[in-house]
Design a protein around this nucleic acid. Structure first.
Lengths: 142, 142
DNA sequence: TACTATCATTTGTATATACAAGTATTATCA
DNA sequence: TGATAATACTTGTATATACAAATGATAGTA
């Protein structure tokens, strides 16, 4: 059943959740080739491109809670894709050589995801959708 | 930090998740007065208004997996707000008197949630946003 | 310089949800 | 009519994420 079939889905709550879950599915699919979740993949890409990035910054960029970042890093660390060094109150995260080797594959995942939704929604509509979401998210910042 | 500050949030993945989480927060807040999550609250409202509704229909309407519906019902049942009767392969869910008594409060929650986001986004923009989300969700149906 | 506040991160725990496999029932059809 | 398929739901388990409290470190101030 399509979402529009139900009057209940007129509610922003279910509409936004349903959309996010569907997009999540596309993303998970695109990232499955590197056996990482989209969040893990993004985080890894970020620390490859900005070595030493701190968990707090990652939390801001990825819009996740610091505790969530800790968990993501733990998993990447257990797979020897990143390492953490802590000095004083600052922690730096670096990709290992093994992690760095994944960069091309990671970019492929990102590209694949992008292509996928653009092919369904169209380039223009996709861009507008993202912009609109970001705008609304910002407005909703309490 | 606002989402627009990060180039990474240009990605549909984080944009949609961030938006859904923010809306979730608003909703959780509105439903907290009945000590139910938005999903539990909606489900309860639905079975009050359509007594005997089956888990499968609830799954369609709320756009959640049947297993998730089972869990939602279990919780409402443990709080004596609904009961399930199974005959053959069909299960019917009914609100208990105690559940039915909550209808006015539940409607208040829904209204509160609605008012809240409309006051931030405006009535027109809110409506357009929901419509757009539903449209995109449907397009993304694979 | 000691005291407290603030910051960065982690840990413990909880929630919402999903997927896959399992169970029970009914329908189909050869 | 008996075997197989389809339906409806539940159970076991896993993931993504959050919040609140705890830890440890530095900074500000009296």
């Amino acid at each position: 059943m399509k979402s529009a079939d139900s009057k209940f889905c007129q509610c922003l709550y279910f509409a936004s959740n349903a959309l996010a879950r569907k997009i999540e599915k596309l993303a998970v699919n695109s990232w499955s080739r590197v056996d990482l979740s989209p969040s893990h993949g993004y985080l890894l890409m970020m620390v490859i491109e900005e070595p030493g990035l701190q968990p707090g910054h990652l939390a801001n960029h990825l819009q996740l809670q610091p505790s969530t970042i800790t968990r993501l890093i733990e998993k990447l660390e257990s797979r020897k894709l990143v390492i953490r060094t802590t000095e004083g109150k600052v922690t730096n995260v670096y990709a290992t050589p093994r992690g760095k080797d994944m960069l091309p594959k990671l970019k492929e995942c990102l590209q694949d995801f992008y292509q996928h939704y653009v092919s369904i929604l169209g380039k223009d509509e996709s861009a507008k959708l993202v912009q609109n979401m970001i705008r609304v998210t910002d407005k909703l910042d309490l």
